[in-house]
Simulated scan of single mutants.
Amino acid sequence: MINDNKTILKISDWVKGVTRNDELIIGFIDSMNIIQEAVYVVVAESDNEELIGKTIPLPIKQVESIPSAKSKDAGQLEFLIDLALSTGDKEWFNELSAELNSKKQSVN
């Protein structure tokens, strides 16, 4: 799916956007509805704390892709692990845990 910035969005991409109530959100795409031109975003951060951890629909025109960092530090990985736990994503949790363990072993 392509947004107004001509960026191709796909499931698991990190995005930022604004809800219809002008609430800023940052999260990742859980699913898409091409017919309605909407993405369903699992909210990781928001100025409305009640949205954190919830999946909300947003029009594709209201989201912008966040470029992924090549390398995450331990703090970022721990935050993402907590998010994976809160969303029940076992596969992502295992992937992040392995990355964190690898990073810790390379430091020692």
Rank of each mutant, 00 (worst) to 15 (best):
E23H: 12
F79H: 12
I52F: 00
Q62S: 15
A44P: 00
V63K: 12
N33C: 14
L51R: 01
V18W: 04
E91H: 04
D47G: 10
E50A: 12
N48K: 12
D73M: 08
T55E: 12
R20H: 02
K54P: 00
V18E: 10
P67F: 12
I34H: 11
F93M: 08
K72W: 03
Q36G: 04
E64S: 15
D47E: 07
A69V: 04
S31D: 12
N48P: 01
Q36Y: 07
S31W: 07
M32A: 10
M32I: 13
L85H: 08
S68R: 15
V41F: 01
L85M: 10
N94G: 05
D22F: 06
I25V: 15
V18K: 10
S65C: 14
L80Q: 10
N21V: 00
D47L: 01
E78Y: 00
E64V: 14
Q36S: 15
K61G: 10
E23C: 04
G88A: 11
S86C: 05
Q76H: 02
V18A: 02
Q76M: 12
N94I: 05
L80T: 01
S65P: 08
Q76W: 14
D73S: 08
D89Y: 08
L83Y: 10
K70E: 14
S31I: 04
A69Q: 15
A74R: 07
I60R: 13
I34M: 05
G75W: 02
L24I: 11
V39L: 06
L85F: 02
I34A: 09
N33D: 15
E78K: 07
E95W: 00
R20F: 01
E91Y: 03
E50V: 03
I56R: 05
I35P: 03
L80N: 07
I52P: 02
S86V: 01
I29P: 04
T55F: 04
P59G: 05
T19A: 11
L51S: 06
D89H: 11
N48R: 06
Q76G: 11
S65G: 14
D30V: 08
L58D: 03
D73F: 04
N48Y: 02
N21Q: 12
K90R: 11
I35A: 11
E64F: 13
I60Y: 10
E50W: 05
I29M: 06
G27Q: 01
K72D: 09
E49G: 01
F28R: 13
D82F: 01
G27T: 06
V41Y: 06
W92Q: 11
T87M: 15
S31Y: 11
V41M: 03
G53A: 07
V42S: 03
L24F: 07
T87Y: 07
